[in-house]
């Protein structure tokens, strides 16, 4: 069937105007919705609580570091890794299916607008809402640490926090795009919510557990004596760097095993967008904990350009993921015929 030819010169501007009108309404709806305030509130509390405990640790001397703000920001990242996807899902799961259920989609589509205008307006609004929520929550949490515990901030810290906010918005938006896609073909918002949350649970929890199981299934059980010694040393000394009676060969054998498990597990988890986001934020805040806690306490802060180049693949995946789902959403929504 032929495409509507009403996109005359100036049609692009008209489309943008329509999308902006929808975006304005969506934004107003979002900022006055209880759902958003609840998620933003939990997000904020989560972030402030984790930064407070970290910065309090510095204050009382339980934690020591040369870059306290980097450590504090890493605790915000832990909270964001869970909350950002929920924010994206909360904004998107009923974006289209809700309009369909309420019958407002029929009213919207009976106006002289394109279907793309509806979806563009919703995306614009979602970007603004996720951007604001994550920025405000992160900055509020950082401010609490600065004000209550006199943590100093360097220009490099600010840059890292800025990048972290940017990647977190993209991460949240990735879940928005995924949930929007589900919403475009769902006739019920409850179905859309269940599917979206199910995918999040799979990526955030199940895949990492599954990956360990699969790695163990492929490699077989760990070397028995090495594992026993490892556990003993952990109980005795609190970490693995003191081998607790293991011979260098046994230690090497065990380390090889752990490395392979980590490689297989990492490969499987690479299917999860959460994994790539965590890789980026971990690098930004030097929050790289080795397998089973290796390297805990070691803080090696790579420069921002180095991080961006070493994590380029993760960054690309983080950006491509929402694009793929947005394109899919466009395709489903614009081709679906609403009676």
């Amino acid at each position: 069937m032929g495409r509507d030819i009403s996109v005359l010169p100036g049609g692009g501007m008209r489309m943008l105007k329509n999308a902006l009108s929808i975006a304005r309404k969506e934004f107003a709806d979002a900022v006055t919705s209880k759902r958003l305030w609840l998620i933003a509130g939990i997000f904020l509390l989560f972030s402030i609580a984790s930064t407070y405990s970290t910065s309090f640790g510095f204050r009382i001397g339980a934690r020591q570091t040369t870059r306290p703000m980097v450590q504090i920001a890493s605790s915000i990242a832990s909270a964001t890794a869970y909350m950002a996807p929920l924010l994206g899902i909360a904004l998107a799961f009923d974006a289209i299916s809700g309009e369909r259920e309420r019958g407002t989609l029929r009213i919207l589509l009976s106006r002289p607008i394109y279907r793309e205008d509806v979806i563009n307006g919703k995306i614009m609004s979602a970007l603004a809402v996720t951007g604001l929520t994550i920025t405000i929550s992160s900055l509020a949490a950082v401010s609490v640490s600065i004000l209550l515990h006199n943590i100093s901030v360097t220009v490099d810290d600010v840059s890292r926090i800025g990048l972290f906010i940017l990647f977190s918005v993209v991460f949240s938006f990735a879940y928005y795009a995924l949930s929007l896609f589900v919403s475009t073909f769902s006739s019920k918002s409850s179905h859309s919510l269940v599917i979206s949350v199910g995918i999040w649970i799979f990526f955030a929890f199940i895949l990492s557990i599954m990956s360990s199981f699969i790695a163990t299934a492929i490699l077989g059980p760990p070397p028995t004596r090495a594992l026993t010694l490892f556990n003993m040393s952990r109980r005795q000394f609190g970490n693995f760097t003191t081998p607790g009676g293991a011979t260098p060969q046994e230690l090497e054998e065990y380390l090889n095993y752990v490395r392979k498990v980590s490689e297989i597990s990492g490969t499987i988890q690479a299917f999860s967008i959460n994994y790539h986001y965590t890789q980026i934020t971990s690098s930004l805040f030097s929050f790289v904990a080795g397998p089973l806690g290796f390297g805990r306490g070691e803080i090696t802060i790579a420069s921002i350009p180095t991080i961006l180049s070493t994590r380029l693949i993760d960054i690309i995946i983080l950006i491509v993921f929402p694009i793929v789902f947005l394109v899919a959403s466009y395709m489903v929504f614009t081709r679906r015929q609403e009676k």
């Binding site: 006055t32 407002t104 009213i107």
Partner: peptide, 10 residues
């Protein structure tokens, strides 16, 4: 005026 239409209740 479509059949089964709705408005933004809020």
């Amino acid at each position: 005026l479509p059949e089964g239409f709705g408005f933004y209740d809020h």
